[in-house]
């Protein structure tokens, strides 16, 4: 990292983090938030050490070590400093999914979930902020979006949050903070009998064929093409569709491809039950 000979190792080693937070808590008379580094395989051990050492709150994530690219003319990685570069700290919209995952692990842990968390990592809009709060953040911190667009982005964040809360019937922030944490479970607890299949709205389809190419080349060959003039027509082969979402993700038209629930059976069956019952594995 770019700090001169200190920093990273302190935040990566739970025992050193515990010692430093201990020093801080000996002296501080106001609330202490400890900011966690994402440059570890899990933020939980360092988070636990900080909470056990008395930190009143946690914030995450700090920036992720990165090399953003190499200039193909000078052959020097960026940012450029007199013919050299160093590893930097990555942030912005690209890191949001990583931040949300790390935040969730903090919200799910019995020790780290005892303290409030300030969510950081690519928050650019009120929607991003709400997602962080649904996954356990009491508030959010923003940087890159302000550096990109200026301080006035907060006006939209304030009105957007207000409107969404009114629409959902939430009176105060505490009504929804952490509400989505329990919806992230372990893979083996997922319902194997849940199944959905794609549906292409022919009135919205622009006949671009992106869904067909994606499904044909890289997924389950579940889209039928009827060659025509001037347009080809694409329809889902329902018995082949595994409901992976890929066609919907590549489709450039909003709400053209939707996923329609089509359960295998009404009851909930997880992977452990499924094995015990000796139910059939993939049949295509």
């Amino acid at each position: 990292m770019t700090e001169r000979g200190m920093g990273a190792s302190v935040g990566q080693d739970p025992e050193i983090a515990r010692m430093v937070v201990g020093w801080v808590m000996e002296k501080a008379t106001i609330p202490v938030i400890t900011k966690l580094t994402p440059n570890v395989h899990s933020v939980v051990p360092t988070g636990r050490a900080c909470v056990e050492a008395g930190s009143n709150a946690l914030s995450l994530i700090n920036t992720i070590q990165s090399v953003t690219g190499v200039d193909l003319d000078t052959l020097v990685p960026n940012p450029y400093v007199a013919g050299k570069s160093v590893f930097g700290g990555y942030c912005g919209p690209a890191v949001k999914p990583i931040a949300l995952k790390m935040l969730t692990t903090i919200a799910q842990d019995e020790i780290t979930s005892r303290v409030p968390v300030s969510g950081i990592g690519g928050v650019s809009t009120w929607r991003d902020a709400v997602e962080f709060m649904l996954l356990g953040a009491s508030n959010v911190q923003v940087c890159t979006a302000a550096m990109n667009h200026g301080f006035r982005i907060v006006e939209d964040m304030i009105s957007g949050l207000n409107n969404w809360m009114d629409e959902k019937g939430f009176d105060k922030l505490e009504d929804f903070i952490g509400r989505s944490v329990a919806a992230i479970t372990h893979w083996e607890d997922l319902d194997i009998n849940y199944h959905h299949i794609a549906n292409i709205n022919q009135d919205k389809c622009i006949h671009c064929g992106l869904c067909y190419i994606a499904c044909e080349d890289t997924s389950h060959q579940s889209i039928h093409i009827a060659r025509g003039n001037p347009y080809n027509k694409y329809t889902i082969i329902e018995e082949e569709c595994v409901g992976c979402n890929l066609c919907k993700l590549v489709c450039p038209v909003d709400d053209c491809i939707t996923m329609v629930e089509d359960r295998v059976a009404p009851e909930y069956v997880n992977w452990k039950d499924y094995q015990k019952l000796g139910l059939p594995l993939n049949d295509h």
């Binding site: 609330p31 938030i33 900011k35 009143n56 709150a57 409030p116 300030s118 950081i120 902020a129 709060m133 009491s138 508030n139 959010v140 911190q141 923003v142 940087c143 302000a146 550096m147 301080f151 907060v154 964040m157 304030i158 949050l161 207000n162 809360m165 009114d166 939430f170 009176d171 105060k172 922030l173």
Partner: peptide, 25 residues
């Protein structure tokens, strides 16, 4: 209108949007 004021460990702010420790601050 919803109340978007925030109380983080007793630290109050009119909304939950803080600027992170970085060049803008």
């Amino acid at each position: 209108m919803a109340d978007i004021s925030s109380n983080f460990l007793g630290i109050k702010s009119p909304n939950p949007f803080w600027l992170a420790s970085a060049p803008p601050t």
